[in-house]
Design a protein around this nucleic acid. Structure first.
Length: 257
DNA sequence: TACCAGGTGTGGC
DNA sequence: GCCACACATGGT
């Protein structure tokens, strides 16, 4: 569970004395690790059963991935990782904010965003803002919570999202859905791939960031063209690309921290 | 002090 | 279409 939270797919969680408190949209849960399993305490059981993707057989996925030699160490190291089924709006905003940013600062800005206009939750925490609440924020509001030069893009993005039914895009095939996402402000190839994987549960995408570029150069040969890197990796891992990406990203990043 | 972080938008060619 | 560059900001 700790690995699932720490592997970079989700930003809104905090350590507690005996585990974590996890936030998703307007929901929250307390998670404690135990010897063989973990305990989730929440008033939204159905939501978090889906959130933690408990119906998916990850042992079967990992058995398939084990046939790729490059994943030997990542699977040993991060075998507990699951891909979460997160709140879609939160994923879009979070990864638009993630561009050329670091995970710690993204996390802090998102907590400040919740506090700025989200509904209060128990324990002094706040829900992720609704689209209507996000629409009340100005560029300078975003700057004041640390969104930096992405602030203007975020205001525009929220306006675009307000004028479309982006949840309904889920039924589109991956390539078509990606074109829709690329038309959004602040969403380029990499952020679109993250939204596809973490927001729409499309696993035939391989987000290529600075860490994956390092992995590729180490295991597959020198290349700094991310278009080529992504094409190669999707060709190799196909429908398992999203899973492979998470294990490789987590292993590479933890190794160098 | 420079460089880096889950990159994207823009203008020049 | 490709390429170089600017862009906030906190950490190392």
């Amino acid at each position: 569970m700790a690995q699932t939270l720490a592997c970079g797919q989700v930003f809104s969680y905090r350590p507690t004395a005996d585990g974590f408190v996890v936030f998703s949209g307007a929901h929250m849960a307390y998670v404690t690790e135990r010897a063989q399993d973990y305990c989730v305490r929440t008033s939204d059981c159905a939501y978090f059963k889906n959130f933690f993707d408990l119906e998916t057989d990850y042992d079967a996925i990992k058995r398939k991935l084990a046939s790729f030699g490059v994943l030997d160490l990542p699977l040993q190291f991060g075998g507990g990782i699951r891909i979460l089924r997160q709140d879609l709006l939160e994923v879009i905003i979070s990864f638009a904010l993630s561009a050329n940013n670091n995970i710690k600062r993204i996390t802090n800005t998102l907590f400040a965003l919740r506090q700025a206009c989200g509904n209060p939750l128990q324990g002094g925490y706040f829900a992720f803002p609704t689209l209507l609440q996000l629409q009340t924020l100005t560029e300078s509001d975003f700057r004041s919570i640390g969104a930096g030069y992405r602030s203007a893009q975020l205001v525009k993005l929220i306006d675009q999202l307000s004028n479309t039914d982006f949840a309904a895009w889920a039924k589109l095939p991956t390539a078509e859905l990606k074109d829709k996402l690329l038309a959004l402000s602040g969403v380029g190839t990499k952020v679109a791939d993250c939204i596809l994987l973490f927001g729409y549960a499309k696993t035939d995408v391989f987000p290529v960031d600075t860490w994956i570029e390092k992995v590729f150069n180490q295991y597959f040969g020198a290349c700094h063209n991310r278009v080529i890197i992504r094409r190669n990796l999707v060709d190799i891992f196909k429908d398992l690309s999203g899973y492979a990406q998470q294990y490789l990203f987590f292993y590479q990043r933890e190794k160098s921290l």
